[in-house]
Design a protein around this nucleic acid. Structure first.
Lengths: 329, 329
DNA sequence: CACGCCACTGAAACCGATTGCAGACTCAAG
DNA sequence: CTTGAGTCTGCAATCGGTTTCAGTGGCGTG
């Protein structure tokens, strides 16, 4: 029912090849002919069939985005960025949610790989080995994680932690607790190291309180242990955890920031709605998505030169109401 | 590079046609042959090229999901449901975010329509006329909205409002304010009507305070007007608005639920993290996504019988800490 | 034994685009 | 007038499947 390239050719009085060329390599066709083709295209509302084009070019014009959990506002934002930038390039985005399941992730990626030109893997839970295997057989860009020889973009966790620590130390905090996320998480490891280094630089003490689910519940679970460390400030794996922690502290009657200061990471929408509003390290999320698309498209254009490209984004400390001067001993 | 149907045919010692049949209509081929084909498929790791198949069948095996804002947790949940159920049917999902722009929506839908077998439109902002036009030229399932002759699923807003009102009236509230969402929103209209009817049934009074953006900011903006109505309880368009309202009330020193009770709609994750935790009408979001996929697939199978199918989901009142007895006058 | 039916398989056309190759035409130079 | 280069355009092959149509062979029946 929709117009084909032959319909356009007939109407314009040229051959299908000419129509094809007029559309994809305009400089190769006479401008008068090109105008006739353009008119015919316009009149028929012709849009090339992507399946047919894909069959011959081997390109689908689609990319895939794999995230651990779409309902997590962090990933939703990244997805928003990806999708907005992809549209600009007339590329469609398949979105897949792995439900935080590393095993499912690998299978899903394999299945998706057949239908797209490349994949954006956001905070992949897969092992390094699986990841490398995937990267060799399909075009991949990593977000929020790095791997040898795989292009990707990540956040400068060290610098973010430096900012948070500088802020806390300036407020007089000398003993700071760290509530880590999933042990397998690349971000957890780097944030933990960054925090540790920053504290060392400032001559302050670190108290680790283990690893918790990167959720509100995880934060509630971590709260009592964080308090028990005797620290006067807590830095958490992400904002969701910080907000859960806030809730538990409130339930226990511990004042924030009076008794304890709390710092999150991410700056999700919820954070400024928390009570007290959460001090956090804002990570540019949509921008990560946008850059990931640019990077992937560059890789597709030229797999060789772009393969080792890696981009680093910087966080920004947002001071709100959950941090204050350390309590007098 | 990947194996084609011809490779499989050669290895199995049959013709490509037989391979095709063995895969898509197994009962038409001899079981011994079928086994040989299966073995060859297995050995080569063959997966049919979807573009090639789509070219001849006219089906892409893809569906599209259009939402106003992925960063809104309500839509993120629906997307999660859609995407999970689609995977079960081996259907890929294109996700597009319109950024709450009704004009962009129409164009986006048109573009997306070419690449998919059908579309799920979630809370479309488009006009009835545009929507009908779209529905005639492509397979569409509506979520959170109804339109003449277009299949869709929506929530029973009237019943949800009945539950909320029954709860508030039982707590002694007799004058209840309504904070509406965008005027063009189908949900706003139906919720408003439902609330109005429910209040009438219970002999209580309604105070409308206009329409606001369906966001945290919208809620903050609405708070003072809601207070000024003299109502002892407020029902808001959605949870995001309710949470914004809560924040402004807190800033003004108005106690919730002591001075004013607040009820939201949706039950997003944030609601139980709010302080006080928000009483709300929970809408099954992921389920809406799942059913939308089922419905769309049914429409694709048989456009005629399924065309007028419409499904209604029911809300459930979740009582938390933002509602309490009406203050003594 | 001849015939017809049935179950199964293969050859070939086709979906709608892209692209290598070759032909047609213009124009300038020899 | 011939030749050659250069510019455009069309023919036809091709991508990887699906589907129609026409066998082929086996078997039961009259």
């Amino acid at each position: 029912m929709p117009a084909t390239i032959r319909d356009v050719a007939r109407l314009a009085g040229v051959s299908p090849s000419t129509v094809s060329r007029a559309l994809s390599m305009p400089e190769m066709v006479n401008s008068a002919t090109r105008a006739r083709v353009a008119a015919a295209v316009e009149q028929l509302g012709y849009q090339p069939n992507r399946a047919a084009r894909g069959l011959i070019t081997g390109r689908t014009g689609n990319i895939g985005l794999v995230v651990p959990d779409l309902a997590n506002p962090f990933f939703a934002s990244v997805a928003k960025g990806v999708q907005a930038r992809a549209r600009r390039y007339d590329v469609a985005v398949f979105v897949a949610d792995t439900d935080e399941d590393a095993a499912a992730e690998v299978g899903l990626v394999r299945a998706l790989a057949k239908q797209v030109d490349g994949l954006i893997l956001c905070s992949p839970r897969a092992s390094d080995a699986d990841l490398s295997a995937i990267a060799t057989e399909t075009n991949v860009v990593l977000v929020n994680r790095t791997a040898e020889g795989v292009p990707g973009i990540s956040y400068d966790n060290e610098e973010g932690m430096q900012q948070a620590v500088a802020h806390l130390v300036a407020l007089g905090h000398r003993r700071i607790a760290w509530v880590g996320g999933p042990v397998t998480s690349w971000s957890t490891q780097h944030r933990s190291i960054g925090l540790s280094n920053a504290l060392y630089d400032h001559g302050a003490e670190l108290a680790r309180v283990g690893s918790f689910a990167p959720t509100y519940e995880g934060g509630m679970a971590a709260a009592d242990q964080a308090v028990a460390t005797g620290a006067t400030a807590v830095v958490t794996y992400n904002d969701l955890v910080a907000i859960g922690l806030l809730a538990r502290l409130h339930a226990r009657g511990i004042s924030v920031p009076g008794d304890l200061s709390v710092v999150g990471i991410d700056d999700i929408a919820m954070s400024r709605m928390a009570r007290p509003a959460l001090t956090t390290v804002r990570l540019p999320k949509q921008e990560a998505g946008r850059i990931a698309v640019e990077l992937l498209l560059a890789v597709l254009d030229d797999p060789d030169t772009a393969v080792a490209t890696r981009d680093t984004l910087h966080g920004e400390l947002i001071v709100r109401d959950s941090t204050g001067p350390a309590p007098k001993p």
